[in-house]
Design a protein around this nucleic acid. Structure first.
Lengths: 142, 142
DNA sequence: ATGATATTGAAAATTATTAGCATGTGGTTT
DNA sequence: AAACCACATGCTAATAATTTTCAATATCAT
């Protein structure tokens, strides 16, 4: 899925929903598409400010919210601190460094048939969190 | 693993680390051991206050922190709001209601050999998050 | 029992996020 | 192209979650 294509889809989705195409909105989505490290709102804000110093943090918060509602980004599970966002909305799993908190996408499939119901819950999908130590933190250990 | 036993282990661990055995500390761990709904710090605080009205919220925050450092509880992945804690530290998975946020432990094993390394990360363990709709929220849907 | 030291409670300080409101801007209409 | 209107934005204040500070207190080894 090319970045250009996703942006076009986003523009269409905005038009369909009566949302306006603003430079701020585009900038936020572009930053998210260009990164695979699951940035926080603050991270996105800092990156955007370099190019467009006029944006406000509140707008970035609002924009990631709408991006999520439209299904173009997902929140990533975390343990405190700030929410992190992921523009990769296809099914994938996460490799998480227990030391520094780095989160890396991993694409693989498990031989597992997800049941339709579990403990009375209607099951939609799942994701695997793999905890470990990233290369950088392994070095620091020794 | 009996509750009594775990408490004894916790007391030993505290002694080994030079930490004092205080009623507050015990109360926090007891509440966590008695619940399987992954309470927030606020939840724990409210439950403790019934028995011991003297405890302060800050102490509960401090205590869950030390409990985690000693490995007696774990933080549960979440998406905003407050951190939730789990005194079940054995390997298990989570069934999460996307509507109300309820988290239920599920015990099952996947036929999957966890590799020792992935993408350069040294792998320790993993947990599966299964997203769905809890029985109560299914009712509200219809 | 006493003293050294860790712990606690209460309040202030931080951090993360949301909301309110006046102004500005896309995009549609004329 | 000018005008209009609804949605967006920026700024600030408000809220929520958590951490820190510090004086007072309690635990535990002696």
């Amino acid at each position: 899925m090319l970045k250009e294509e996703r942006i076009k889809e986003f523009i269409d989705a905005c038009k369909n929903m009566g949302l306006k195409i603003t430079p701020q909105r585009m900038a936020v989505y572009e930053v998210l598409l260009s990164r695979d490290d699951h940035p926080t709102v603050e991270d996105i804000y800092n990156e955007i400010k370099k190019k467009y110093p006029f944006v406000s943090l509140a707008t970035v918060y609002r924009t990631v919210e709408t991006l999520e509602e439209l299904g173009f980004v997902k929140k990533v599970a975390y343990w405190g601190g700030s929410v992190r966002y992921d523009a990769n909305v296809s099914d994938h799993h996460h490799l998480i460094c227990v030391q520094c908190g780095a989160i890396k996408d991993v694409e693989f499939s498990i031989d597992w048939n997800l049941p339709q119901y579990m403990e009375g819950y209607k099951v939609y999908n799942y994701s695997v969190h793999i905890y470990g130590l990233c290369p950088q933190c392994q070095q620091k250990e020794s």
